[in-house]
Simulated scan of single mutants.
Amino acid sequence: METENQTKVSEFLLMGLSDNPELQPLFFGLFLSMDLITVLGNLFIILAVSSDPHLHTPMYFFLSNLSFVDICFITTTVPKMLVNIQTQSKGISYIGCLTQVYFFIIFAGLDNFLLTVMAYDRFVAICHPLQYTVVMNPRFCGLLVLICWVIIFWVSLLHILLMKRLKFCIGTEIPHFFCELAQMIKVACSDALINNIILYVATTLLAVFPLIGILFSYSQIISSLIRMTSAAGKYKAFSTCGSHLSVVSLFYGTGLGVYLSSTLTHSSQRSSIASVMYTVVTPMLNPFIYSLRNKDVKGALGKLLCRAISSP
């Protein structure tokens, strides 16, 4: 009977952020607003970059890719949560859960990789300005993004194939508002040692090495800025890095907060609330950081809005 319960599972139960029914309308309105702000904000960034020829540079090419990934990132988790709140249901199908895990890994990983590539772009622009146009040519930029997609595609696929060998009991509850890989491994009814090993190895490699790349790039940038004699040159160089540094700090800061909350506390609800910062708040704030701190993006957005208003 136990074997039957493990092999015939077709649905999981997402426990969400709270069981309090009075909070559900508040959560629905809050997350719907955040979802719409994220999608519209990042969409405006993409449209601004694509419509303004002055922004057809490697830095803004990577920024538009980051905005696209952020739209996909939040769309992977929040819509299902909103549907469950609206229908007063906690269910998600087995296939739907695997799909959510697959795409969540892809877009979280791409966020990480693109921030690293953007740091390298700033490193070349500031430390090797005479070689910038040669090194960061359109073909190389496209190749960097393609490599990011290929690596994370295979990593995500490996996790899904390993998850398919796990058995889950009927009525399995996931103490989260979406199907998160680590939580899925925890609630499995079969041995998940291999899954845990691959999870820790992949997380270490995909988080530590990009972070080392970002830190190395900015150590070289800071060293180059110190050697600059022109105050105007220092300000211009720093202004191009300010937005990226803010996004990197937000991304890794919230990611570290999720990790610490899950390891230092045994409360799944606190861990889920911490995950909101990483999965929802960060993608929502990225377009504001880039638009408010960047004159070129603000100018392009202004032209885009004027064009939209003046068109019949």
Rank of each mutant, 00 (worst) to 15 (best):
T3A: 14
T3D: 15
N5Y: 06
Q6Y: 10
T7P: 05
S10M: 06
F12L: 04
L17A: 02
S18E: 05
S18G: 03
N20V: 08
E22D: 13
L23V: 08
Q24P: 02
P25S: 02
F27G: 04
F28S: 03
F31N: 03
T38L: 08
L40F: 12
G41Y: 01
I45P: 02
I45Q: 01
L47S: 09
A48M: 05
L55H: 06
H56R: 13
M59R: 11
F61G: 09
S64N: 04
S67E: 04
S67T: 03
F68W: 07
V69I: 15
C72N: 10
P79E: 13
K80Q: 15
M81I: 02
M81V: 00
L82Q: 05
L82A: 03
V83Q: 05
Q88I: 00
K90F: 11
I95N: 15
I95M: 15
Q100I: 02
V101R: 06
F104M: 14
G109T: 03
G109M: 05
D111Y: 02
N112C: 13
F113N: 07
L114R: 04
L115I: 06
T116W: 14
D121S: 09
F123E: 05
Q131R: 11
V134I: 11
V135P: 01
V135F: 06
V135E: 12
M136H: 05
M136C: 14
R139V: 13
I147W: 01
I151S: 03
L166F: 13
C169M: 09
G171F: 04
E173L: 11
P175S: 08
F178K: 02
A182Y: 15
Q183H: 11
M184R: 07
I185D: 04
K186S: 12
V187A: 05
C189M: 00
T203N: 14
L206H: 11
I212C: 00
G213F: 07
L215Y: 04
S219V: 01
S219P: 01
I226D: 15
G233R: 05
G233T: 07
Y235Q: 12
Y235G: 02
T240S: 14
C241K: 03
S243E: 12
V248Y: 01
L250P: 06
T254H: 03
G255N: 10
G257N: 07
S262L: 14
T263D: 08
H266K: 10
S268K: 08
R270N: 00
S271W: 03
V276R: 00
M277T: 11
Y278I: 00
T279S: 13
V280Q: 02
T282H: 12
N286C: 11
N286K: 10
Y290Q: 06
S291M: 13
S291Y: 09
S291W: 09
R293F: 12
K303H: 15
K303F: 14
C306P: 00
I309P: 07
S310K: 14
